[in-house]
Design a protein around this nucleic acid. Structure first.
Lengths: 188, 188
DNA sequence: CTTGTCTATGCAACAAGGTGCATAGAAGGA
DNA sequence: TCCTTCTATGCACCTTGTTGCATAGACAAG
């Protein structure tokens, strides 16, 4: 279960509550992993029971109290074990590709609308990633010499940016292909 | 559940048994979706019970009999419904990215070994995809004018190729970054 | 004649993930 | 005062996916 390890890494970078983790999973961690708050709370509880995490009740003013989690020694050890064991290279799960091949048996116009929607969504994501890169790594506000942790975060973000650029180019290829298939014989 | 729809598309392209589907999921469908034979058999059974598929017992010589599945009218309708309803743009789940950020808290040498392993695996996949492209779409053995279904299969394969190329370039970026972090101060 | 491999199908148990719903403190606006 | 929004945590249920195991026909090698 890599969610556990993603949480360990995130809490090593900075301790925080389940709620805060959920927001990180909507932002930087979200470049390569997604999780809902229910999932996160459930796993946090189990990890605490297992002794991987330490909890601290934190009273706040102007908002409800929170539980701040941090990594305990057994958690660090568990992460280290995982980092040293090989994992399978991941495989894609791309619903849209199923739809594209399915369009051969159905209305291509519906596919075009869907692909255009996805293209916009990936364009938005790319813009968000680029803004985050400016803010945290390459802009004038960013820390001048990045430390090792920040360099590694940056290279992961560059991966997200490359993925979005590649996906956008591919979706353009898909649109061009579908149009090419529709156009050549308008009065066949 | 997109596995159901992936099976519908695959059976529309060509009827076949669970075993054959499992092999397709190791090949062309595997460009964008993976599934084990247990999953496939389970879903096939349910889809047949639901009336989406028709089965035909086929006796074979030299090997066990098989059940050949094909898409029934309600299956075609179910696929069409799904093709017309919007789906969420997918998000990545990349364990390796967790490891990369985790390397800030552990031995970078282990990360290098792992990244090199993944780089090789993606290189192998790219070679397989390119060979398949030659064989089915661009080579001299390929059908001269591709029909719409083949054009769509090709554009999906181009997506897989673009993904592997992007990933390989990114993994090189990761290796360069890790080496840069290790090199500058060998006697600090 | 036994062993191994390929084809072919399947069950049982478990792990992981997603959806819907519920609760509750604090702040701000209608 | 009521309603909404944001912060904050959590349960119950259901679907999906994975792992391990089991069976069995046909063939080839030893």
């Amino acid at each position: 279960m890599a969610l556990e390890h993603a949480i360990l890494v995130s809490l090593l970078e900075k301790p925080g509550s389940g709620y805060e983790l959920a927001r990180r999973f909507d932002r930087s961690i979200g470049y390569f992993w997604t999780a809902t708050h229910q999932q996160i709370y459930r796993v946090l509880k189990r990890m605490e029971t297992d002794g991987l995490l330490a909890v601290r009740e934190v009273a706040q003013q102007g908002r409800p109290d929170k539980k701040e989690y941090s990594v305990a020694d057994p958690g660090r050890a568990a992460l280290s074990d995982w980092l040293h064991e090989p994992i399978e290279p991941e495989s894609l799960r791309h619903d849209l590709a199923v739809k594209i091949r399915g369009a051969a048996f159905d209305d291509p116009a519906a596919l075009v609308r869907e692909v255009e929607r996805h293209r916009r969504a990936h364009g938005d994501r790319l813009a968000r990633y680029l803004a985050g890169e400016q803010r945290d790594f390459t802009g004038p506000e960013a820390p001048a010499p990045l430390d090792a942790g920040q360099e590694l975060q940056h290279v992961v973000l560059r991966g997200g940016i490359a993925y979005e650029r590649m996906t956008i180019a591919w979706l353009d290829d898909v649109l061009a292909t579908v149009h090419r298939l529709a156009a050549p014989r308008p009065r066949a």
